Simulated scan of single mutants.
Amino acid sequence: MAKTYIIIVAIAAVILGVYFALPDRHFVDSVFPLHDGASVFEYDDKADGGSSEVTFALTDSSASFSCMLGADTAKSAWCGLLLDLSQGEEAEYRNWTFVDSLIFELESSGTDEILVKVWTFDPDVTDISKPRTFRLLMKEIPLTKGRQRIAFPFEQFYTPDFWYDDEHVDRTLNRRHQETVARVEIAPGWNQPRGKKFSLKFYSITAKGVSNFAFGVVMFLMLGLMIVAIGRTHSYNKENENKKAEPKA
């Protein structure tokens, strides 16, 4: 019996030794600069009769975007920057299962807030041909003037009530579907003044996290060893009880 326990302890020590010897398994996905066929483009409200003015310039190392929302308050006004990560195919969506933070390095002027929107594929709701049916995860990001580096937890992203209402989605369908990211969108903040130009220059947008896969494997193996140890102890105790119950000659 003691030999069995020694073997189990030795195996557990080897498992832990291998785990601690592994390098940190960090997850990093570069949203910008672009890679893997991703694309970026600007949009405005001109097609719907709006008068917002947008300019956009892209280089290998930066994406510059400026916008002035239309001054006519009788009309809706919008503009933004859209990074398409999916290439239009579900199989190509970015898997952000292990993402715990988003990091922006950018330069800004004329605004103190942007909306960052992450659109994910939701199999219960999404029609690939209708972009707004992708699940919206959104976060308001405060800015200061000039160049800055901003990092914030991805868990702070939320699905706003208006998305459920606009797409007629049952609020019990609240899974984030973080493993299927299709697009990242940058839009003006809620209180951006009309008729006032703002500018953004992005140097990098990065999704980061730490994979728990190795830890999960270790816990599974340790659980297996505990089951073996408990089973062996139970068997040993039962054998002793049977021996004690045997009639003496």
Results as ranks from 00 to 15, higher is better:
2 A>I: 14
2 A>C: 15
9 V>H: 11
9 V>E: 13
11 I>W: 02
12 A>C: 10
12 A>G: 06
16 L>H: 04
17 G>C: 11
19 Y>H: 11
25 R>N: 13
28 V>N: 12
29 D>T: 08
31 V>P: 01
31 V>W: 01
32 F>Y: 12
36 D>I: 10
39 S>C: 09
46 K>H: 10
48 D>C: 11
48 D>T: 12
53 E>G: 03
53 E>Y: 10
56 F>C: 04
61 S>D: 11
64 S>A: 07
69 L>G: 03
76 S>R: 15
76 S>C: 08
81 L>W: 02
83 L>D: 03
90 E>R: 14
92 E>Q: 15
92 E>L: 15
96 W>S: 00
97 T>L: 10
102 L>N: 00
116 V>K: 04
119 W>L: 14
123 P>G: 07
123 P>K: 12
135 R>G: 03
138 M>T: 11
138 M>C: 13
144 T>H: 13
145 K>D: 12
149 R>D: 09
154 F>E: 06
155 E>R: 13
156 Q>E: 11
156 Q>D: 14
159 T>G: 11
162 F>H: 13
163 W>Q: 02
170 D>V: 01
175 R>M: 06
176 R>T: 01
177 H>F: 13
181 V>W: 03
185 E>H: 05
187 A>W: 00
191 N>A: 07
194 R>K: 13
196 K>I: 12
198 F>L: 03
199 S>P: 05
200 L>P: 01
206 T>H: 05
208 K>Y: 06
209 G>F: 01
210 V>M: 11
218 V>L: 07
222 M>Y: 10
225 L>C: 12
234 H>M: 11
236 Y>R: 14
238 K>H: 10
